[in-house]
């Protein structure tokens, strides 16, 4: 272990505070018995009660859930295929198409899909949003699955094939079980990305469809209200849960590299 000067520790602690203080304030004020997010008055659950009586918010939550489930399901299937393909074959076009949506500014994808859907007379709504979410989630699933494939012994598949398994059987009974943690982690990640997405949804949802982030956006555009704190707190809890589960299943989500030999 190398030296950790007190100054370094102090700066790092300050940065952690910078990361967490704002979110902590959102959570604390969601229980505050005051319309103003200014000072602590007293404990209340009123904002949560108001939240669960807010039909617009509930409809938005329902939309987000439906889009998230559909998008993560399809993106997981396609992303897993892409991840396997990227690991096994030397391809030119696929890597470009898988990683480009991650590398370019989000807004570009949002507006190009808007033009695309409108020119095709495709009604903007739940379906167009789900299609857009699938497109940007595939890459994230593919990355996680490819990492898992890299840690897998391909000789096992060869052995299964030599014992007479068809390619499908070898995939179903050897490859898939081995990469399953990566697949599930990818699915959870895709679900989280979909639930959280604002920019691409903003352009592809059209006027009539509202998701949770869009609802939050229109609320905070007008005024700050503790109801937003309440929905934010619940959303953070959900994301936290999903990410903790995902990172348990696929530690590579957290480590930016394999354990270095010591």
């Amino acid at each position: 272990m190398r030296s950790r000067s007190p100054l370094l520790v102090a700066v790092a602690l300050a940065v952690y505070a910078f990361l967490y203080l704002p979110l902590a304030i959102v959570v604390v004020y969601s229980f505050n018995d005051s319309r103003l997010n200014a000072e602590w008055v007293g404990f209340t659950l009123d904002w949560y009660r108001k939240l669960f009586a807010d039909d617009d918010m509930l409809a938005a939550a329902r939309n987000s859930l439906v889009i998230g489930l559909v998008a993560s399901l399809v993106a997981t299937v396609l992303g897993t295929m892409a991840g396997i393909a990227l690991h096994r074959y030397r391809l030119r076009l696929l890597p470009l198409l898988v990683f480009a949506p991650i590398a370019i500014p989000e807004i570009l994808m949002g507006v190009s899909l808007l033009i695309f859907f409108v020119l095709l007379n495709f009604t903007l709504g739940l379906v167009s949003v789900a299609i857009a979410h699938i497109a940007f989630c595939i890459g994230f699933v593919a990355i996680v699955v490819r990492a898992r494939m890299a840690g897998m012994d391909e000789a096992l598949v060869e052995a299964a094939r030599d014992c007479g398994a068809t390619p499908w059987q070898a995939f179903r009974h050897v490859t898939l079980p081995l990469i399953m943690p990566g697949v599930i982690a990818g699915a959870l990640m895709a679900f989280t990305l979909s639930i959280d997405d604002f920019v691409i949804t903003f352009f592809t949802a059209g006027a009539g469809t509202v998701t949770l982030p869009l609802q939050i956006y229109s609320m905070i555009k007008i005024a700050v209200t503790p109801e937003v704190n309440a929905v934010s707190t619940l959303l953070m809890l959900l994301t936290l849960l999903l990410i903790v589960v995902a990172s348990r299943l696929s530690p590579s989500l957290l480590r930016s590299q394999e354990e270095a030999p010591t």
């Binding site: 990361l19 979110l23 934010s232 994301t239 957290l254």
Partner: peptide
């Protein structure tokens, strides 16, 4: 490292909203 990543996974708009407060 997890502590660095976690806030990033909270909704983008929530993080903006926190600064509005």
């Amino acid at each position: 490292l997890l502590l660095v990543i976690l806030p990033f996974w909270s909704n983008f708009l929530i993080r903006i909203y926190a600064w509005m407060i």
